[in-house]
Amino acid sequence: MIIEAHDLRKTFVARRGRGRTEEVEAVRGIDLSVGEGEIFACLGPNGAGKTTTVRMLATFTVPTSGTARVAGFDVVKEAAKVREKIGYVGQAGGIDDNAPGRASLVMAARIAGLSRAQALARADELMAAFSLAEIADRPVKTLSGGQKRRFSLAIGLVNRPPLVFLDEPTTGLDPQNRANLWDEIRALRDQGTSVLLTTHYLDEADALCDRLVIVDHGRIVAEGTAAELKKEVAGDVVTLRLDDLAAARALLDAEPYIKETQEEGGSLRAYLDDGEHNLPALLRALEAGGLAIRSIALDRATLDDVFLKHTGRSLRDAA
């Protein structure tokens, strides 16, 4: 295990103005274990505590309580050792706007202990890998969001870390750049690097990650592979709009093929396996009950349904 965390907690004391303070429980007891060579995701809405968790694991923030070992070292007592083993790309990017990307990259390499010649070579290597060579000598503030993001990533990898933390690596990128970044992250795993990333995109956690945790209000609400988590809910989901939600829910709960129902934002979601075959039966049951359907849709269950099951809210409007 490259990351092992037990009961991590962080309570911030935030100023509220006029000398008053307020305690914010950002993380309320998180256990994590991430294996070597794994892409692991923390999925959660805004304010869930993803950044705070990553910052504690990356030795930036000292936990209020709990312990964590990263690459075999304690994040508090052996922070310096941990820092040698990790790459960290924060949510804000963290590149010097006034310097050209190349200068920042070489600088980061030298801080990591490389000689000038080695640092130049490492910078060239990373710039080639992330197609940055052509824009390497322009001040970073003149680059596009995607180009900056690639530079941040390159800087995070400068010391060839066995583990990288990527805090919302694809937020704000267009679909093309996002797909490219996914490929780059997969390439990292294929070289044996472990990746812990945070995201609030369902499809990203689903498609990119080997394993994930879903966090909400500072706690883990579900953990496993995307397939396992979705199987826990059901294979398919029927979303219904009708006038009498409560009656429809009672009626469907009594049907043998329905595993679970949830009301969400004026519609009813009914979970079932083998939706294509059970849909006709569901329609007949509603008709027999005299309930008029305004609209109906059949979809595969997603991680959002997992989130809904555990929190009663949809991730799309949880923020």
Binding site: A92, G94, D96
Partner: peptide
């Protein structure tokens, strides 16, 4: 001050510097 927001100091703080 800007570097406290754009993540530069955060990155340096967890680097080997």
């Amino acid at each position: 001050i800007n570097e406290t927001r754009n993540g530069v100091l955060e990155r340096l703080a967890v680097s080997q510097a």
